[in-house]
Structure formats: structure tokens, C-alpha cells
Amino acid sequence: MISKKYSFDFVSKYLWLFSLLLSSAAFAQSPFELADVLTEAGESHSYMAKEKDLEVPVTVIHGAESGPVLLLTAGIHGDEFPAILALQRLREEVDAKQLKGTLILVHLANLPGFHARRVALHPADNKNLNREFPGEKNGTPTEQLAEFFTREFISKMDFLIDMHSGSWNQQLLPHVYSPFVDSEELDELTFEFAKATGMQHIVMYGERPRDPANSISYPNTAMTRGKPGLTTEIGHLGQSDEAFVEATLELSRNALYFLDMLPGEPTPHPAPVIYDKLKSVVSPVDGLFTPRVEIGSVVEKGTIVGEVRDYFGNVVTELTSPINGTVMMINETPPVKAGESPVTIGIEQEV
């Protein structure tokens, strides 16, 4: 059962998890089926989940005892590498015979985007997988992939972590999005799940639709179906540094401890910072962007966060923060178009 040290009422959480287990496909006495492939209790099975032209490398670790189904997904954007490497290590680390419940590892959700080296997009239709949920079975390749994940993965899991990092042009302050959909019990459990990851910076996020038929993003597809779904951002600039990989592994372990799937206690950050909103700083012109602040900088309204030069090197405009907050994202490469946001500011929750 979940540790009592979290603020969410222990009995309510236990009953919530128990109800999830009753509806889950993960009973240790029976094989776990995913994409027409069975994995026996107490076994780990890595394979290519296939349907028509779709291929997704997955590992199912089906525990010897019953418990929640946790889905960890890397590579929704194929150019974000730390989580891809971390889940390969987690596959070797988790022993199915010691696991309660079922752990699903999606090693690389957007395989075509990965091999095409595309920033966020699928090369076949230039669509962002994380904007096409719940998908369409007879749609474009990206829409088909979203529908496959909705039908085969989200329907069979109880908790989701969608693992991201910054693309080649983005520097990010590591953070986790804790979405809310105005369901008190679900939103509170999702927030406790976010804290349990151990990440310091937690962004409360309620901007996605509440309609399951128009869920848009992968985690919101889980949330609109009554299941906690987090997004983590660890790593940046298209890099796969060891520190980023290890941080992703650590949050994965914390998730398993939080759900009592492995013995151990999660280690929430001792000083979490909660953000109510993210505010974009928008460039009014095309040109070359140069940042004037760093990731994690605390800025006041009116602080110059960057400047845009024309193609001859003349400063055209200075970009200023519209609010007091913390710098969460910076575009570290020069190209910027009018209407694009090269800097994002997080607004800290008032205590």
C-alpha cells in the first residue's frame, strides 16, 4: 500500500488503487496481453508491438503478484534521448519475480521520427504525435499511431509517465507537469504522483480539453479516461548526458516505490516548487535571438530576457518578461520567427 506520509488521504488513495486493480488486466495469475502478445506472470518480454505499418519497441514486465499497471513512455518525440536510454537500463534492472503489478516500457514511441532525426514531428505527415490524440485508426500515420496508443496502451494501464526532454534548440529547467481535469480525487492523486517522482519543479497544468474524444496530448488522454498521466522534462539541447539518464531512472524508481510495485520508499524533493502557470515571451519580429538570462533565473516583470537582431546584426527589439517568475525554457539557437516564443517563464504558486 502507499506510504502514509503523503497529504492525500491514505484510505481514499488505497480505495482508489483498489478500484483500479479490479478493472485492470494485470492479475498475476493470468498472462498480460498487449498488442496481441502475451506475457506470463513473473516474466519479462521485449518485442516489437505491431499493427499494419506501425512498429513500437516495448517491454512488458509482468509481476509475480497483482498490482497497478504503470506505463512509462519515451520517444513520443523521437529527438528526445535521455528517457530512451533510461528505459533500456530500467528493463535490465526490474526483476519480474519481485514486481507487484505490471510495468510497460515503451522504449521509443515515434520510431520514424527517431530515425529521421526530426524535431518532434513524424516524417510521413509532419505531425506532432503529442497533438493528435486520441487519434484515428484510418487517419494519417501519426493519427494511426495515436489511436494505437490510446486503444492498446492507455486502455490497459493505471498510471502513465510521458517522458520528454528539450530538443536540439531548447534548454529546459527539469520539471514535471501535473495535469488537472477538475476531478478532485483524480487531480489530487495525480499531484501526489508528481511529487513522488522526486522532481523539484512541478507545473500545474489544466489547459487541455476535458473531452476524451478531443484529448490532444498523450497524458491528457489518460486523464480524460480517469487515469493519472504525468509529463516529465529532463535534459535539453538534444543531448543524452549521463546525469539526464540517471535522473530519469531515479524518477522511474520513485514511481515504482510510490505504487508499491517494488520494495522501497519514494523520495519527494524536500523543497518542491509549484507553478500555477507558464507564460510565453513572444518575439514580434523575425531574426536572430540571443538570450540574456539563464535557465532557473528568477526574473521580475520588465526584466530583459533576450534580444532579437536583424540579419545584419542590428538589435531590433529587446524581449522582456511580462511577469515575475522563473525561467523554465530558453531557445539556445538563433533562429526566431515573429510569434514564436524563445523564452518561457513559470509563475510560482502563492503560498
Rank of each mutant, 00 (worst) to 15 (best):
T73W: 01
L72I: 10
L71W: 15
G42D: 00
Y47S: 07
D79R: 07
A96P: 07
V56A: 13
S44E: 09
V60C: 12
A83L: 02
G42M: 04
T59E: 11
L72E: 05
S46G: 02
V56Y: 15
T39Q: 05
K97S: 04
V94I: 09
L99G: 07
V58R: 13
S24M: 01
G67H: 09
G78F: 00
K52S: 09
A49Q: 13
E93P: 03
L54A: 06
V56E: 14
H77D: 11
E55K: 14
V58P: 05
I61E: 01
A74D: 09
E51M: 12
P82E: 14
K97I: 02
T73G: 08
K100Q: 07
S24Q: 05
L105Q: 08
Y47G: 13
H62N: 08
A74T: 08
L38F: 10
I61W: 01
H77G: 05
E92H: 05
D36N: 14
D79A: 07
P57E: 03
D36E: 15
V60G: 04
G101L: 07
L71N: 07
S66G: 04
L103E: 02
E80W: 07
L87W: 00
Q88D: 12
E65G: 14
E40M: 13
S24I: 04
Q98H: 15
L87R: 01
L90Y: 02
L70N: 03
S30M: 15
A49G: 09
P57K: 06
A64P: 03
T39C: 08
L87M: 06
P82R: 11
E33G: 15
S44D: 11
F32H: 06
K52E: 15
T39N: 11
T73S: 15
P68A: 14
L87F: 04
L70R: 05
A49P: 10
P68G: 03
E51G: 13
S66N: 01
V94K: 00
L54T: 03
A25M: 11
R91G: 02
F27D: 13
T39V: 04
F81T: 11
F27V: 11
A96Y: 08
G42Q: 01
L99Y: 05
L70G: 06
F27N: 14
F27P: 09
V106P: 10
L105I: 04
Q88M: 04
S46H: 06
E65S: 12
F32R: 06
H107Y: 08
G75K: 02
A41K: 11
I76G: 12
Q88Y: 00
D53M: 13
R91L: 01
T102G: 02
A64E: 07
I104P: 00
L103W: 05
S66P: 02
V94H: 06
L103M: 08
E40Q: 14
T39K: 10
L103I: 12
Q88T: 06
A64L: 07
P57D: 14
V58Y: 09
T102C: 09
V94L: 05
L38N: 12
S24K: 01
H77P: 04
Q88G: 02
A28K: 00
P57N: 08
D95E: 14
R91Y: 10
L99K: 05
Q98G: 10
A25W: 09
P68W: 00
T59R: 02
H77T: 03
